[in-house]
Nucleic acid binder design. Structure first.
Length: 278
DNA sequence: AATGTAGTCAACCGCAGGCAT
DNA sequence: CATGCCTGCGGTTGACTACAT
């Protein structure tokens, strides 16, 4: 989005306790960017002194994280990202920063806003409804399978290893996603901002590696992980390299069909319920 | 064309956890 | 060990934009 009169843009600048508040000017942005470039992130409270900004540390951090970071995507949330958000929200609830770590280039604020806009009012899109329903369904099926397998005995373990390998691939999702910064372009045509940077890729991947260890089982049933962030945008039906045969992208091509309302499943309570199932 | 409403997004606020002293 | 500071997170607000009537 353009720097300028958006949102708070028309507000008169106000100064409270010596701190400027309200919309950031391009000049302030420059100062902040320059500061981060030289000193790195962190130590936000010293930014005001070092960079000559009359902004609180919190404000500086927020501006950087939500707007100035070079790796941010500036395009709309894509269906596949939406799918990820749905899944992770089902798992974690309103832990936006955690969810955001799984979506390189997206901020917690962005995801939070997106969620509130699209789902909070009890009006999830049909895409998301179906994606979520499928996610829950496949997770159930997977649990059943696991139970069956465990009852079959250890001789089947090597078969599981095959599955583990697949899940292992899932663990690369972070890196894939990180390098998949361009995924938004195909879906929206919006100009994605800046080229991928290594910082987020590594950072995100690191976090994802940890997370996906726990998340594999959740993500795979629905999306088959690796393809999750990459393929869905391509029109939905074609080209989903899904190993499950049915991915969230299957959902997106189709039209109407009001899924049953997810109702309580859709809010935090529901999320908690979902999580406890595991 | 004018008005009303919903959607979007940037920013602020308060709180909690971690860390240094 | 206690206290204070810093950072990060989630919730909320408010202004602009887009769309519908």
């Amino acid at each position: 989005m353009e720097e300028g009169p958006l949102g708070w843009g028309r507000r008169q600048e106000e100064v409270v306790d010596g701190w400027r508040k309200g919309p950031w000017t391009s000049q302030e942005d420059k100062l902040l960017v320059e500061h981060v470039r030289q000193h790195g992130e962190g130590r936000w409270n010293s930014v005001s002194k070092l960079a000559g900004l009359k902004r609180s540390g919190k404000s500086c951090r927020l501006r950087w994280v939500n707007y100035l970071r070079p790796d941010l995507k500036r395009c709309k949330i894509t269906p596949q990202e939406e799918s990820v958000i749905v899944q992770l929200h089902a798992l974690w609830g309103n832990r936006w920063s955690t969810i955001a770590r799984s979506l390189p280039g997206r901020t917690d604020n962005e995801i939070k806003n997106y969620w509130r806009t699209h789902f909070k009012k009890g009006k999830p899109s049909k895409n998301v409804e179906r994606a979520r329903a499928r996610f829950l369904k496949q997770r159930r099926e997977m649990m059943q399978q696991q139970q069956q397998q465990s009852s079959l005995g250890r001789q089947h373990l090597h078969l599981d290893e095959g599955g583990d390998q697949r899940r292992g691939a899932c663990c690369t999702t972070g890196a894939t996603a990180a390098s998949g910064d361009n995924d938004c372009g195909s879906a929206t045509g919006d100009a994605c901002a800046p080229p991928p940077t290594t910082t987020v890729a590594t950072e995100g991947a690191g976090a994802d590696l940890v997370m996906h260890d726990a998340m594999d089982c959740f993500l795979c049933p629905m999306s088959c992980c690796d393809d999750l962030l990459v393929l869905h945008g391509a029109g939905g039906q074609a080209g989903t390299g899904s190993c499950c045969g049915s991915t969230a992208s299957d959902e997106y091509g189709s039209s109407e069909e009001d899924g049953a309302t997810w109702g309580s499943l859709w809010n935090l309570d529901g999320a908690g319920e979902v999580c406890t199932l595991w």
